[in-house]
Design a protein around this nucleic acid. Structure first.
Lengths: 345, 345
DNA sequence: AATATTTCCTAAATCGGTTTAGGTTTATTA
DNA sequence: TAATAAACCTAAACCGATTTAGGAAATATT
């Protein structure tokens, strides 16, 4: 089974034709360059028979193409991103592409570094969940003709393909659900960030609150390597705002720490405090009480991203030839943590 | 900033030397081949100045090396594997290596396919959580001189580097903890699998049970794409074994479904049923009651794997020249789900 | 002074493909 | 019949590095 590397030259020799011919057949250009059907078939059959596979580095060297897609996520160990990576990987492999990925930690510098690495590695295209202030670098890529697909967030003023979710409406829907369950003093705990997706979520909150004429209670916390820090910040906030009867956590990082804060304060969900989280987690349905969450359409995000990229790659359309903007719908998964009335027992 | 691809030839021309000289300097072989310090410095300085980076595909083509490590995990969206991937990725990049990864679903056929893909991509080395019956393919790799590091499980009769955890002792410790908290009729729910790591965990269970003279209660369930199926299987098992007072879940897949089964049956943890899970999860400390778990040393697993591989790669030792076997210790994180007595409130 | 060593550097082959610019035949047209 | 076009195929350049084999100049040896 351990096949010795067979080259295009070997094939040419074996069939008594030129490398050129074999190459053209391999690349489906037989028609174009007028190679007889008979020869084409002979080559194809032989290739099939010996199980020839081109050396990708020779191809890469000559054509500049590598069949590698570079992916930049915020954190590959985050369940949202790893789930997406998983699906993208699978489809990519099926189409003969490989994925190299890397975690930016939403850190602009790290992201820039990784883009450099990718560029030097001559990846063919990019799937990126962009950190802030990376517009210029991404514009460079686009100008250089590389396919780029952004997901999870957009960068304002950047003419790329985007796959995002309907942050505003899904938060609005969740908030409305809160309200119809009798919650009114609803706090919105978010990351201090001016990334679009976060602002949109906030806008959904503001909209609801202003509609019901309730005051805004917004707490912004900074991302901190030390979770304890974030947890305490939330605890302090909650204890100093006793009138709050529900809280919306705007990201899963916040939610994890927020839930721990609630636990530390021995508050009862949802009687003392209703809870809804942006971004669902496998485990939320197992909590007692189970946690209501906005679930993002991971499958669709992944499949749209990868097919967009592959499209651009195979059609050889440069990124700036067109630009697709896909906004996907989230699902509100209603569980116990947001329903004061119907709680069993 | 968009540097035009500058080649080794450009450098040679600019400095009025030969490509050969530049190449030798670049590869640190200046000394060996007797290039004057002065010229070496001149080349180095110039390279620095123009920010030259070699074309990896030319290098790959010529040298057969790609600075890519192929990684095979069971499921990149599983928190255990994604956490490890994250760390490995980070260290690899720092050393100038890229990681391409892929999920096997513990499926032998899929793993074989991916190994083929990796081979064709000429990856330099392999980090693998091996599925069953993949011995031959891995032996091939080793015979071909590729560095291979196995983690999470071993394959019996395979002379590779392994990074594993002390499955037996950590389960034994967890079981002992159960016993000292008054649990006795302890069930062991596991995957039907004869992979070493699973058998070792089972051995830890058996050892404890035989020491306390209690009968074995083992339930094996098959991995099923449909979680509901697994959940029901566990429900049925639990309802037909009412005398069980505690249960050990041998993997996180089982645990997730097992916890849901317990929830569906409205059993109270730990009063009706003590629970310990193999493999910790971020969320377990937030459960009510919180879930006791055996936590694997993710950092150590990752750092050992990557440094072993890099070692082999840079020392150019073939895999069969030596073989390292590292067994790491797990930590039992004791929480509420396994403590009948001390439970607060 | 003649020869042998070192020291320092380079020409050219090579890796395995892709692609440009043709070169033969054979068929068609004038 | 000669000129033109079409059909079919290939030689050789090229991508950008690494590495072998060896050349010229400086130094050491006899």
């Amino acid at each position: 089974m351990a096949k010795k590397k067979i080259t295009i030259g070997d094939i040419a020799k074996a069939l008594g034709v030129s490398k050129t011919t074999v190459s053209f057949v391999l690349n489906g250009k037989a028609r174009k360059i007028q190679i007889s059907q008979e020869l084409e078939k002979r080559v194809l059959d032989y290739i099939q028979q010996v199980g020839y596979i081109p050396n990708q580095y020779a191809q890469g060297l000559r054509s500049g193409k590598t069949r590698i897609i570079g992916m930049l996520v915020e954190d590959i160990s985050d369940s949202f991103f790893s789930a997406i990576a998983r699906q993208i990987e699978e489809k990519a492999y099926k189409m003969g592409y490989k994925i190299v990925y890397s975690s930016t930690e939403n850190n602009t510098e790290k992201a820039k570094e990784m883009l450099e690495v990718y560029k030097n590695s001559r990846v063919d295209g990019y799937i990126i969940a962009p950190p802030p202030a990376i517009e210029n670098e991404i514009n460079e890529l686009i100008k250089d003709g590389f396919p780029v697909v952004l997901f999870d967030r957009t960068l304002p003023g950047l003419y790329t393909d985007n796959i995002i979710v309907d942050n505003f409406n899904s938060v609005y829907e969740a908030m409305t659900h809160f309200v119809s369950n009798g919650f009114k003093n609803i706090a919105f705990i978010t990351l201090s960030s001016d990334q679009v997706q976060m602002l949109e979520r906030e806008r959904g909150y503001l909209q609801t609150m202003s509609e019901i004429g309730a005051p805004y209670i917004i707490k912004r916390i900074k991302y901190h390597d030390d979770k304890l820090h974030s947890i305490q910040e939330i605890e302090t906030f909650l204890t100093s705002h006793r009138h709050i009867d529900a809280v919306f956590f705007a990201t899963n990082y916040i939610a994890e720490n927020g839930l721990e804060a609630i636990r530390n304060l021995k508050l009862t969900i949802p009687d003392d405090l209703g809870v809804i989280v942006f971004d669902d987690n496998n485990m939320f349905r197992l909590f007692s009480p189970s946690i209501t969450a906005i679930s993002q359409p991971i499958n669709e995000i992944a499949s749209n991203s990868i097919s967009l990229i592959l499209d651009k790659l195979t059609n050889k359309l440069a990124s700036h030839d067109q630009s697709v903007n896909i906004i996907l719908k989230n699902t509100l998964v209603i569980r116990e943590s947001s329903q004061k009335k119907q709680r069993t027992k």
